[in-house]
Amino acid sequence: MLTLNVNGTTHQVDVPGDMPLLWVIRDILKLTGTKFGCGIAQCGACTVHMDGKPVRSCVLPVQSVAGQEITTIEGISEKPLARKVQRAWLDHEVAQCGYCQSGQIMSALALLNDQTSINDHAIDLAMAGNLCRCATYTRIREAIKDVSESVGVWQP
């Protein structure tokens, strides 16, 4: 039995320690907002936060995250900054198929949480690990810029 803290709730899960966190979240905890895309940390669809930092849950053995605070897309909506990000995503009509967007939003939120100064380069560095096959990149950039401006950290 492993003890996991996901979205503020403690879960006891009976899984092999080498099972990647992604599958624990999706198949055991049934939180399917976090997506499977590649399994090798190359697409970012599985991005969740571990103690506030963005991590790729597909390559993270669950035993290595015990005791840390995991946040998934389902657990962010209470946070004002996250709501701003989600709002910006809708205002800019970012999503197309939408499959990658949970991961995109988690990466964007981590950037916004972390940085006191954001510009295009910072967006590149923080978001380049998240693939979007529909190629909604232009709008992702605009949405992040929008939120950065509204919270006063946009510094081109």
């Binding site: 940390a41 190359q42 991590v55 390559v59 560095l125 380049a128 690990g129």
Partner: peptide, 21 residues
């Protein structure tokens, strides 16, 4: 650094500590 951001940082992180793992 652009390529590192594209393909590497997801696991290794900028601080090289790999807080991913």
């Amino acid at each position: 650094s652009k390529i590192f951001a594209d393909a590497c940082v997801s696991c290794h992180q900028w601080d090289g500590r790999g807080n991913q793992s």
